[in-house]
């Protein structure tokens, strides 16, 4: 009996040591994530400099690359899902940051493989190879869409009337793709529901802007006739 309990104890100690190591790395990543997010949130300000935001936020990427490399060195490949809960959310928030940066820079949604390239992560080739999985990317997409809904409103206040059109195209496409998934009433199902409301908000903005533009063009025609 004693031997068995000693073995248990050793396993426990080993586990907790591993967890501590992972937590240290994750804390570092989270710090970078947060300062990354502050700079990105400046995109909502009325007078923002787009180039400055892109330049400053790109400085974080090499650091992130290093930390992720060390994170997946400490977690052995077979045990990815053992510590899944501890790194899932931080990872999805970095994904979100890079998605948003991609939108500010190129007005385009980065695919999963592109983000993995930027961060230097390995994508599993077969289904059974568990690396970073698609689940995290999809989680970050939800947050990205709600942030775009905010950006839509703010870009109009800044005087950019084309942005809402682009955003509505992208988000409606993402929403229609999400409908292809079979979701039970789990986290995913709820998030898809909230995505619907974000889309509704964006459509309202687009409607308002479109209404304004048609009124303006009509009034111009009338004045020309006179």
């Amino acid at each position: 009996m004693d031997e068995i309990f000693k073995k248990f104890e050793q396993i426990q100690i080993k586990n907790s040591n591993q967890k501590e190591e992972i937590h240290k790395i994750i804390e570092n990543i989270e710090k970078i994530n947060k300062s990354f997010q502050i700079i990105l949130s400046k995109a909502h300000f009325k007078n923002h400099d787009k180039n400055e935001i892109v330049q400053k936020s790109k400085e974080f990427i090499p650091e992130l690359k290093q930390h992720y490399k060390s994170l997946f060195e400490t977690i052995p490949k077979e045990y990815h899902h053992k510590f899944y809960d501890s790194w899932k959310f931080t990872c999805s928030s970095t994904f979100f940051n890079i998605l948003f940066l991609g939108w500010i820079e190129n007005e385009r949604v980065y695919l999963f493989s592109e983000i993995a390239d930027i961060l230097g992560l390995e994508i599993p080739e077969k289904e059974n190879d568990l690396g970073i999985d698609v689940h995290i990317y999809l989680l970050s997409l939800f947050k990205f869409c709600s942030e775009l809904a905010r950006l839509c409103v703010n870009s109009v206040t800044a005087g950019n009337y084309e942005m809402p059109w682009k955003i509505s195209l992208v988000v409606s496409e993402i929403y229609s793709r999400f409908k292809l998934l079979n979701t039970n009433n789990d986290v995913f199902g709820k998030k898809i529901n909230s995505l619907k409301f974000d889309l509704k908000k964006i459509e309202e903005v687009v409607f308002d802007v479109h209404k304004l533009q048609t009124i303006q063009s009509l009034s111009q025609k009338i004045t020309k006739k006179d």
Partner: peptide, 20 residues
């Protein structure tokens, strides 16, 4: 409102940066 929005956005971006 435009002035207030500026102030609130600044405060919000400060709060995001706080550690857990």
């Amino acid at each position: 409102p435009i002035k207030v929005l500026e102030a609130i956005q600044q405060i919000y971006s400060l709060f995001i940066s706080l550690p857990r």
